[in-house]
Amino acid sequence: MIEALISYSFLQNAFFSAILASIACGIIGTIIIEKQLIMMSGGIAHTAFGGIGLGYFLGIEPLIGAMAFAVLSALGIRHLQDRTRITPEVVLGMFWALGMALGILFISFTPGYPPDITSYLFGDILTVSRSDLIITVVMNSIIVITIIVFFNAFKTYLFDEEFAQVVGLPVVLLETLTYILIALTVVVLIRVVGIMLIIALLTAPPSIARQFTYSLHHTMLLSIALGIIFCLGGLWISYVMGIPSGAAIIVIAVASYFIVSLLKDYILSSHN
């Protein structure tokens, strides 16, 4: 594998995108868990499929279309949940399905041979291209820099939104940033695990990490480390056994979550 990694550029791309995906995932996944935005993130991811369809239809990079759809849907869902009396879950459900429907429609309108959409739905880390990698690097830098710069403000906002407002922090700005960062993370993850599987890679690492630490940045760092283990593990298995990489990564991540949680419960209860 190591020799192959040195000689094949597709494996190098896969390797770097696994690392970058884990960084975005560890940071934003932790925020999603603390703010209970898991379903929201699933909704944003699925809506992004509309953008992939639109990208094909217009002949532009599908990930750029996905980013536009993800950001706009994140802000749109938030706005409708805040400003209307429609039940928040309903807004989310509608966007979720509408995004998928639009994606399929745009693709069917696209003349010529239909593109392979499974790699967007279930991920295919072995086909990550140089341009995908560049998009990923840009998104990751935005995510990491934003969180580092506003770290104390984000912490306070995540812990107690009302009090953040009392001390005068710009809560609306922090909230908007959170949604935009979730959208960018979704874009980073689409090529790695695919739209359908994103939720598990976002939630499994921080759910494991937060069982072991009482500090936010440790949770984020530990989540990043776990994400790297899951992604590289999945990549390796998929390369060696020739099975779909996205699915391999998710199975490892979810299995690890249950094993760690059950083991921890078991060890704790046998101590008492």
């Binding site: 995540l158 710009p170 009482y214």
Partner: peptide, 27 residues
């Protein structure tokens, strides 16, 4: 209305009272 599960120690939670509207960039 706060997140009781949040990875925060008591002193970190109390410290947030020292923040102001200017505590944004690299605080």
């Amino acid at each position: 209305n706060l997140n009781r599960e949040f990875p925060f120690s008591v002193i970190e939670a109390v410290l947030t009272g020292r923040l102001t509207k200017h505590s944004l960039f690299l605080h």
